[in-house]
Design a protein around this nucleic acid. Structure first.
Length: 494
RNA sequence: GGUGCCGUAGGCAAACUGGUAAAGCCGCAAGUCUUUCAAACUUGUGUUUGCGGGUUCGAUUCCCGUCGGCACUGCCA
């Protein structure tokens, strides 16, 4: 792909006021943040900018705000490559000019159908079991007919002519040759809405083409759901006398049921994943693995930069990929297990605070020690909240299993021995703690395992959890170990 | 309904232009380690490539049909 490689990552935003869909949350347009998984890899691999477009009409003020928000999200996901933004509202003059050009060339025309008439037409088609499509009834209006409609006060839309017998085909980077017939495109397409004045808002399929020509976009990489727009857009490129770019349609991400991943699946954007405790790196990593496989010898855990170096469309699969939470979990755990403790600590602190745990954030040493203990067991960041509860909440109580453990022969005596051995005001070292256990085990003539398991039960209230010695030391630093033992002994004897 | 795309184990997938199918990863199961869970490591687990024909010495790969899934089918983007 020598010479220039510019990809247009287009994010579209619903116009709330006009949409008939219930609450088209603008986040939905961004969906799971995966639409751009391959684009970004490609762009960074070629050192080209990713263009970022907000396709919102109407109040121009809101578009920059949406852009800012999404831009932040991309950055969050480490998708930080050079970006340029553009807003449709800034480009209205260009669209106007291009529409006029098509009109002048006779490739587009004014159609005066009312929405009610169009509905009636489709109803009738449906009744006859035909595919709904515009029958091009206003394509060749006489000046008199036009004048008549105008006199009635009708406002025309602009329609672009699509010939029935036209064949459109292109060589898709991921799918090979794809072919469509003009007659399957639904009739002459509307490129601008009806409105007062010459013509109204230009529409998506037209706008993207004008923009992409203007920005000299060479490659359009997008989700497979756009495949049906491509033939229409190709026709527009030709009509506008522009070079048709290279298209690539990447597979969709499916939920367990095999449908397009959506809001119902609980994730609509990268921030949703982050709230669930997934790191941005893990998300980006997993997303790139959906529909693409790394070349032989490449690990499946990789940064976006590494992916960019090896990325190749040859290895993009055509079939939609089912989203697998198990694998995302595993990938996320890999990142968490190998993350520097300082960074992990920073990520965990907000979760602990949010959980309402009381602690001194400046007690960095203790927090880091805790993080290091937790790290190997983490799958998602917020797992840390439950896992470390016994270190933040004074009164933990005993689970049934813990009670059972402490009722084992010798357990109580061992706990009493340990309690007596813990110095009241010096902090235990690991060697100290080991020594205490050694001594008590010998003195009570028990197996070490019994002592350890019982100690865990008494100290943490449960029979399993993070490393016991570390947990004890952590507790000891806050002088909570003795009180835990006392409470446990009290509960057992009661 | 129409059109398009797709169909390799439970999931993601590999297999150079037709030449021993399932490499690798997740999951699952067992074992090792350990004070527990997890991690880590080891081993194991899954196949008439949706189905039926055809071309061929030979088909996951090419052709036809069939079934299934998904997407699109707007004065949305």
């Amino acid at each position: 792909m020598a010479g220039g490689f510019v990809v247009f990552v287009r994010k579209n935003f619903c116009d709330r006021s006009r949409s008939h869909r219930p609450q088209p949350d603008w986040k939905a347009a961004y969906r799971h943040g995966s639409d751009c998984r391959f684009q970004l890899a490609v762009c960074s691999s070629h050192g080209r900018p990713v263009h970022f477009a907000c396709g919102r009409y109407g109040s121009g003020a809101i578009a920059p705000r949406i852009y800012a928000k999404h831009s932040r999200r991309l950055a969050v996901a480490r998708f930080a490559v050079g970006r340029r933004a553009s807003f449709q509202t800034d480009r209205l003059d260009l669209y106007r000019q291009k529409i006029q050009e098509l009109l002048d060339k006779g490739l587009a025309y004014r159609a005066y159908d009312t929405p009610a008439e169009l509905d009636a037409m489709r109803e009738a088609q449906k009744a006859r079991n035909e595919a709904p499509r515009y029958d091009n009834r206003h394509r060749d209006l006489t000046p008199e007919q036009q004048a008549q409609f105008e006199a009635e006060g009708r406002k025309p839309v602009i329609r672009f002519k699509i010939e029935n017998d036209r064949e459109i085909s292109w060589n898709d980077i991921v799918r090979g040759t794809v072919t469509w017939k003009g007659r399957d495109l639904g009739g002459d397409m509307v490129i601008a809405r009806a409105a007062e004045g010459e013509f109204g808002q230009p529409l998506y399929n037209f706008v993207v083409v004008v923009d992409d020509i203007d920005m000299q976009i060479s490659h359009v990489i997008r989700g497979e759901d756009h495949i049906g727009n491509t033939p229409k857009q190709i026709l527009l490129y030709e009509a506008l006398g522009a070079t048709v770019p290279t298209f690539g349609h990447t597979p969709l991400i499916l939920n367990a049921a095999g449908a397009k991943l959506s809001k119902r699946d609980g994730v609509t954007s990268i921030s949703d994943f982050q709230q669930m405790g997934y790191t941005a790196e893990a998300i980006a990593n997993y997303m790139t693995l959906l529909g693409w496989s790394p070349p032989e010898g490449m690990n499946e855990i990789f940064s976006l930069d590494e992916a960019a170096q090896k990325f190749d469309f040859d290895r993009v699969n055509k079939a939609g990929a089912k989203f697998d939470w198990d694998k995302l979990n595993w990938i996320n755990s890999q990142y968490l297990h190998h993350m520097p403790i300082d960074r992990l600590t920073d990520l965990l602190i907000p979760d602990w605070q949010e959980a309402g745990y009381e602690f001194d954030p400046s007690d960095r040493a203790w927090l880091k020690q805790l993080t290091a203990v937790l790290a190997p067991s983490l799958v998602r960041l917020n797992d840390a909240v439950e896992m470390s509860r016994y270190l933040f909440v004074q009164d933990v109580g005993l689970t049934e299993a813990a009670v059972g453990q402490l009722q084992q022969p010798g357990a109580v005596a061992a706990m009493q021995g340990i309690l007596a051995a813990i110095p009241a005001d010096t902090t235990l070292s690991e060697a100290d703690a080991q020594g205490i256990i050694q001594t008590v085990t010998k003195a009570e003539n028990l197996k070490k395992g019994v002592v350890m398991r019982s100690l865990r039960a008494a100290l943490t209230g449960d029979v399993n959890g993070p490393d016991l010695m570390q947990s004890w030391l952590l507790l000891n630093q806050h002088r909570w170990d003795r009180s835990r033992l006392e409470q446990a002994l009290k509960q057992i004897s009661a």
